[in-house]
Write a protein that binds this DNA or RNA. Structure first.
Lengths: 274, 274
DNA sequence: TAGATTGTTAATCGATTAACAATC
DNA sequence: TAGATTGTTAATCGATTAACAATC
């Protein structure tokens, strides 16, 4: 299944250069990106990690997916904790939990939990706690996980393969549509039921499957091209594992996971706990 | 090389139960962890992601490694950005950079960069900028990356293997000592020059190599055991990829990378950019 | 000197914490 | 009613931003 299409044998030199987003850095004295790069994708470079910035200031996206409207905005810090509450609630399956329990299980304070949940409109009962199922469903809806979201992975190397093999994504709201690569040896193979295809096929697949999120697991040199490919195909959310900062159009959200960065942060606290 | 030692064929039932840190959650109405779990590793559960908490409030660690003493404390948010500045500086290799350039390349504001760097004691020259090499060395020293830090990986599955194969860790300050597993089929193999050993060997290796950081890439069910094993062997910094919150003794720092959590956060911002 | 860019200050913003009234 | 636990408020803390004097 999914036999390769026009396997151009370059390392990762995609032909998608109608956006000539250079991965080189800003001209030396440009006081602002916006001024320096007039055409092409405005370089809304978003970041992640500690102080997130994991999103971009932007006009509303083309079509707002199935999300309860008219909600109070949820603080970024809260959004980042909701998935962890969700993870706990999915273990519990049913019954009632207190903020104290959720806190204990997720490593935050009970006050924090109550505060966070209050942004959802809150579903607790004083003296009793929160109903597990109701709360779980509410968080899932808030996160936009009502139905399974289609995800593509660009880069079918070690890491991409590891992700594709990871069980449990389905249960947590995601579905891998395909992996993409340029290596003819990889194209046409199937990993954990997920086809590996040539990157040329990505735009069509993204359209057809309405892919919401792209994961980049290419080598660093190819990551910007992968991002260009994804964004020009219409993907507005990117999880990037390559150790480079991406330039993406406004309205596209990028989160970064850089293993060496994580280790370096740990290295710092190794010497100064607290 | 590294032939397996007493390969007990259980899935991941390590014998390290002298800390009987249950991975089950806190007793229902314990108002504080500290009160609820009197003996064993006090469950300083630390978190990561957005609002980090990627460290623990704790008395000084046994022996402070080679770090410049008497420094002003660096804010958490700044610590999390320093590795990204470092990544950029390593590309540049030499010359001079302005805060504006660093900002452009890393996706933060120039004011932020200057503020962050001022915590290091600052090395800039007004009207000129920062000297690349000096700044890079300063950040590396601050992060405690003077010499290569030894790291172990617990769990030689897809993800552990992918990390072991990842080139570039050496250049960024780390050295993988070994991977550990309980699967006899894996033990004794070598991945990218790194031996896969039975977990029984971990404590001795940690002592011998003075391992600073442990990475957990086991299945969720085994992660708490892996953490217990690491902490009782003396490891005080853990990077956990398993989708569970770990209980660790005070003084141990844990950072979490949960792929589904990252995707879920992206799912939220997909609908509400900005 | 004129232009550039740092380092720092003060103002603002957002997140966390503690406390407690509301209420089951 | 008594005990438990939420939801919310107010106080505190920490991070970001903007502006600009210092100075190369």
């Amino acid at each position: 299944m999914a036999r390769g299409v026009s396997p151009s044998p370059q390392v990762f030199s995609l032909g998608y250069s109608f956006f000539s987003t250079r991965s080189t850095l800003a001209p030396r004295r440009a006081s602002q990106y916006e001024a320096a790069v007039p055409a092409g994708p405005p370089p809304t470079t978003t970041t992640s990690g500690w102080v997130d910035t994991g999103e971009s200031t932007v006009p509303a996206p083309p079509a707002g997916p199935s999300i309860v409207p008219g909600m109070r905005p949820i603080p970024r810090a809260t959004v980042a904790r909701l998935p962890r509450y969700l993870r706990f609630l999915e273990q519990r399956k049913e019954g009632t939990v207190s903020s104290e329990e959720i806190a204990a299980a997720t490593g935050v304070t009970a006050a924090q939990v109550r505060k966070d949940l209050s942004f959802l409109g809150s579903l607790g009962t004083r003296g009793v706690g929160y109903q597990v199922e109701g709360l779980r469903d509410l968080i899932m809806r808030q996160l936009g996980l009502a139905e399974s979201l289609p995800v593509v992975i660009v880069g079918a190397g070690n890491l991409g393969t590891a992700l594709a093999n990871y069980r449990g994504f389905a249960q947590r709201g995601f579905r891998f549509v395909a992996l993409y690569d340029v290596d003819p040896a990889r194209i046409g193979t199937v990993i954990n039921g997920i086809p590996v295809r040539h990157v040329d096929r990505l735009p069509a697949d993204v359209q057809a499957e309405e892919v919401a999120i792209g994961v980049i697991t290419t080598p660093a040199e190819a990551a910007q091209q992968a991002a260009d490919l994804l964004t020009s195909a219409g993907v507005r959310s990117i999880l990037n594992f390559a150790p480079v900062t991406l330039r993406v159009p406004r309205g596209v959200t990028v989160r970064y996971v850089d293993l060496a960065v994580e280790l370096q942060i740990l290295a710092y606290y190794r010497t100064r706990p607290g």
